[in-house]
């Protein structure tokens, strides 16, 4: 029996080490962003406790109109995009999951084809150009208006709505649209919440299409701006336009800490939603994921 518990202890230890490997880099970024700029050099690369405490990095970021605008843009894209996603995915999923009609097989074949073959980013880009959608949010929002995987997940949920309820409604004379809006949708609230989170995360994290479709930097979402600071290491935009920026203040700042603070701002919405995500996502993926 002793051998037995030993194995368990080793397993727990390995998993604990793994969580540290995930957490320490994240907490280190947080510690960097909250440290006093003058003491940030004392912070070790594995340190998770800020050296001193200062919100100066966040104040600088939040007083940059360019960054604030990009955050507003991101929120706008995320909210409008997610609403459109939900509407289109739900109505399509209902028809495909709960009804029989001529041509259904063809539609399903097309959906599978869409899953295994992606269009080229070049022809997608040229399409947006032909439709005159370049430099408009419509391009960023529309190009992924329905995610086929999520569509299939929602279809599974809709199929679980008990048939007897739908039959009863039909006998009462309710048409498909009534059944969809007054019965299927309210019964699928948890599933819709799951999808809203799926799609919301997707929109908040999107940067690539925005980079190539949105030519006006004032329209950029936050992730594109973050990429400029953190990946391209372009610090002029970061400090440009910050009110009350003096040479002394500039000299007292630490660029690495500013970058970290920007990363933290990008992660905060995710952390706020994370408990919900854990509650819904894991269930959603488990129930509707890949067929076995």
């Amino acid at each position: 029996m002793k051998q037995f518990s030993m194995t368990k202890a080793i397993i727990q230890f390995i998993l604990f080490l793994f969580t540290l490997a995930v957490l320490i880099p994240l907490l280190n970024i947080l510690a960097l962003s909250l440290s006093e700029p003058s003491r940030v050099d004392e912070l070790s690369g594995l340190g998770v406790i800020p050296k001193g405490f200062s919100l100066i990095n966040f104040e600088i970021i939040m007083s940059n109109p360019f960054i604030v605008r990009s955050i507003v843009n991101s929120v706008f894209i995320t909210i409008v995009g997610t609403c459109l996603n939900l509407f289109l995915t739900a109505i399509t999923a209902y028809v495909l999951a709960r009804t029989e009609f001529v041509g259904k097989r063809l539609v399903l074949v097309v959906l599978i084809a869409v899953m295994v073959f992606e269009p080229s980013m070049i022809t997608e880009y040229l399409l947006m150009k032909d439709l005159h959608l370049l430099n408009s949010y419509a391009a960023v929002i529309l190009y992924k208006a329905i995610n086929v995987y999520y569509l299939f997940i929602l279809m599974r949920f809709f199929q679980e709505v008990p048939n007897s309820i739908l039959e009863a409604a039909k006998i009462d004379g309710a048409g498909h649209f009534r059944i969809f809006t007054t019965i299927v949708l309210p019964l699928s609230k948890p599933a819709l919440a799951t999808l809203a989170l799926f799609y919301g995360v997707y929109h908040w994290n999107e940067y690539f299409r925005a980079t190539i479709y949105l030519t006006d930097p004032n329209k950029w979402p936050f992730q594109v701006v973050l990429r400029q600071f953190v990946v391209t290491q372009d610090n002029t935009t970061l400090l440009k336009g910050v009110e009350g920026m003096t040479p002394e203040l500039l000299a007292s700042l630490d660029f690495g800490s500013l970058q970290s603070a920007t990363i933290v701002v990008a992660v905060i919405p995710m952390l706020l939603l994370y408990p919900l995500i854990l509650k819904y996502f894991t269930k959603g993926t488990m129930d509707g994921g890949v067929k076995e």
Binding site: P25, L26, I29, W204, N205, E206, Y207, Q223, L226, R227, V230, V231, Q259, S260, T262, I263, A266, V267
Partner: peptide
Amino acid sequence: SWVVIAGI
């Protein structure tokens, strides 16, 4: 996002 992960 990969932008954030790259930063980290």
